[in-house]
Amino acid sequence: MLRAAAEKFEANGYSGTRLQDIVAGRNLSKGALYFHFPSKKHLAAAIISEQADLWARLLAELRERHPRAIHLLPALLCRAAAQHSEDVMARASTRLAIERDRIGEEIPPLFASWTDLLQRLLAEAKEQGDLRPEVDPRSTAELIVATFTGLCQTPAGGAARVDFKHHLTQMWKLLLPGLATPECLADLEAAPRSAL
């Protein structure tokens, strides 16, 4: 049910999706849908909730391979982009989170949880001596989440999907020199590309 709804929400957005669109052509009845989700709003909230801890799960998987937080940042965004490209649930949850004001307050604050996670990671990088002293973890986290979210919603040049790898590489080329200490930046540049 959630995947069927995610396909419609991704394609048409919250306002453009009706519950009858979700069940049409599927082995689902509107009654069965209402049994599990009393409204379209509850269905949207469930899709976002399914993805709310995605970045935390990805971070936990990457942590062992990347003990330094500064290395985790690009690796995490790369994995999140891959998930977004491959999984309709991830794409639908991002679109629904962008449309949160139209849906209502019951919708989990997806972008706030991403920002909080990145803020903690940036603060950890600062404690490890890898970030410049003037870097503010909160505003940097907000910038990274806004950039990632923008990429999710803006296919370049009319393409069906965004070339996340290219755009994230460009983002890190621009951001890292302003974030990382000169010593850390030299280490990052010397690291094999596969490490990041």
Score class of each variant (00 low, 15 high):
Met1Lys: 05
Ala4Leu: 14
Ala5Thr: 10
Ala6Asp: 04
Glu7Arg: 07
Lys8Leu: 15
Ala11Lys: 11
Gly13Pro: 11
Gly13Thr: 10
Tyr14Ser: 10
Tyr14Ala: 06
Gln20Glu: 13
Asp21Ile: 00
Ala24Pro: 02
Gly25Leu: 04
Asn27Met: 09
Lys30Arg: 12
Gly31Gln: 14
Gly31Phe: 05
Leu33Ser: 03
Phe35Thr: 13
Phe35Gly: 13
His36Gly: 12
His36Ile: 00
Phe37Lys: 00
Phe37Trp: 15
Pro38Leu: 02
Ser39Val: 08
Lys40Phe: 03
Lys40Glu: 12
Lys41Trp: 01
Lys41Ser: 10
Lys41Met: 07
Leu43Gln: 06
Ala45Gly: 15
Ala45Thr: 08
Ile47Ala: 08
Ser49Ile: 03
Ser49Tyr: 02
Ala52Phe: 04
Ala52Leu: 15
Ala56Lys: 11
Ala56Ile: 00
Ala56Leu: 05
Arg57Cys: 10
Leu58Asp: 01
Leu58Val: 10
Leu59Met: 09
Ala60Gly: 09
Arg65Leu: 11
His66Phe: 09
Pro67Cys: 09
Pro67Ala: 11
Arg68Leu: 15
Ala69Phe: 11
Leu72Tyr: 00
Ala75Thr: 02
Leu76Phe: 03
Leu76Gly: 09
Cys78Gln: 13
Ala80Trp: 01
Ala80Asn: 03
Ala81Gln: 01
Ala81Pro: 02
Gln83Ile: 03
His84Thr: 08
Asp87Lys: 06
Ala92Trp: 06
Ser93Asn: 06
Thr94Asp: 13
Leu96Arg: 05
Ala97Phe: 01
Glu99Gln: 15
Arg100Gln: 12
Asp101Leu: 12
Arg102Tyr: 05
Arg102Leu: 15
Pro108Met: 07
Pro109His: 12
Ala112Gly: 10
Ser113Lys: 04
Leu117Thr: 02
Leu117Gln: 01
Leu118Met: 10
Arg120Cys: 07
Leu121Ala: 01
Leu121Asp: 01
Leu122Asp: 06
Ala123Gln: 13
Ala123Pro: 04
Glu124Ser: 06
Glu127Lys: 09
Glu127Arg: 15
Gly129Asn: 08
Gly129Ala: 14
Arg132Gln: 14
Pro133Glu: 14
Glu134Tyr: 08
Asp136Gly: 14
Arg138Lys: 14
Arg138Pro: 00
Ser139Leu: 11
Thr140Ala: 11
Ala141Thr: 09
Ala141Gln: 10
Phe148Met: 10
Gly150Arg: 01
Leu151Ile: 02
Leu151Val: 00
Gln153Ala: 15
Pro155Leu: 10
Pro155Glu: 09
Gly157Arg: 11
Gly158Met: 12
Gly158Leu: 09
Ala159Thr: 07
Ala159Phe: 07
Ala160His: 01
Arg161Val: 02
Val162Cys: 13
Val162Trp: 08
Asp163Gly: 08
Phe164Pro: 02
Leu168Thr: 08
Gln170Trp: 02
Met171Tyr: 15
Trp172Gln: 04
Leu174Thr: 11
Leu174Ala: 15
Leu175Met: 14
Pro177Arg: 11
Gly178Phe: 14
Gly178Thr: 04
Leu179Phe: 05
Glu183Ser: 11
Cys184Ala: 15
Cys184Trp: 13
Ala186Val: 00
Ala190Gln: 12
Pro192Gly: 15
Pro192Val: 07
Arg193Met: 14
Leu196Pro: 07
